[in-house]
Simulated scan of single mutants.
Amino acid sequence: MPDAAPPVPTRRPAIGVSVACWRQGRVLVVQRGRPPLKGMWSLPGGHVEYGEAIRAAAARELAEETGVTADIVGIVDALDVMVAAPAASADDPPAHHFVLAVYAARWRAGEPVAGDDAAVALFLAPDEALALDLTPGAAAVITASRVLVGDAG
């Protein structure tokens, strides 16, 4: 009886979080400072660490990337972000695949300072934020998150 072939490694998406943090009707956005999607604007966020609760990851990533603390209000959406490799064909698998749990939050303290993966961090009026070169799905999240935070955001 021949030996069984070794298992083929399985690629899995990275699990991450993103936060639409609101302060007085303005949303916190960051310009990405690293690939993938370097230079594009997005909501602050990052990876969930092994053993870390997903809401705790959202609050931690917000603070690490911007210096801002906030009260997480609720989940806005779950997004797949798939980034193709340069010069990839439509049939090629993505070079990066992230599954993001996206939360809405109300600002509690801190002024935005770019840190971690962010090159720039600032609060903008929604129309200013929506006019930026945003990462996939960010515009819909900004719009939907405002409903969750209400007028207190």
Rank of each mutant, 00 (worst) to 15 (best):
L37M: 15
V73H: 02
P126D: 00
K38L: 03
F123E: 00
R60F: 14
T69D: 06
R55P: 11
R60G: 08
L28C: 05
V120R: 06
A88T: 02
G25M: 11
T143P: 04
V8P: 04
R34A: 13
A105M: 07
D117T: 13
A121P: 00
E61K: 13
D116H: 10
R12H: 05
T10D: 02
L100C: 15
V83G: 04
G16D: 09
P2Q: 14
V83M: 04
G150M: 09
P36R: 06
V48R: 12
V19I: 13
A138F: 09
P93L: 14
D92F: 08
A78P: 00
I54A: 02
L43I: 14
M82V: 06
A20M: 05
H96C: 11
P36N: 06
E128M: 08
M1N: 07
G74M: 07
V27E: 01
M82W: 01
P86L: 11
I142D: 05
L79H: 06
A140D: 14
H97I: 04
E49Q: 12
V76W: 03
A138Y: 02
A59P: 04
W107M: 04
D77Q: 12
V141D: 04
D3I: 02
V102N: 09
W107G: 00
L79W: 08
A87F: 12
R23S: 01
D3Q: 06
P35A: 09
A84I: 01
G33C: 12
P36H: 13
R55G: 03
R32A: 10
R108T: 01
Y103W: 15
A152Q: 10
V147D: 10
A140C: 07
V17T: 13
A101T: 15
A125D: 09
S42C: 13
P93G: 11
M82N: 10
A70E: 03
A84M: 09
R55W: 04
F98P: 04
A121I: 00
L122G: 01
V149T: 15
A118D: 00
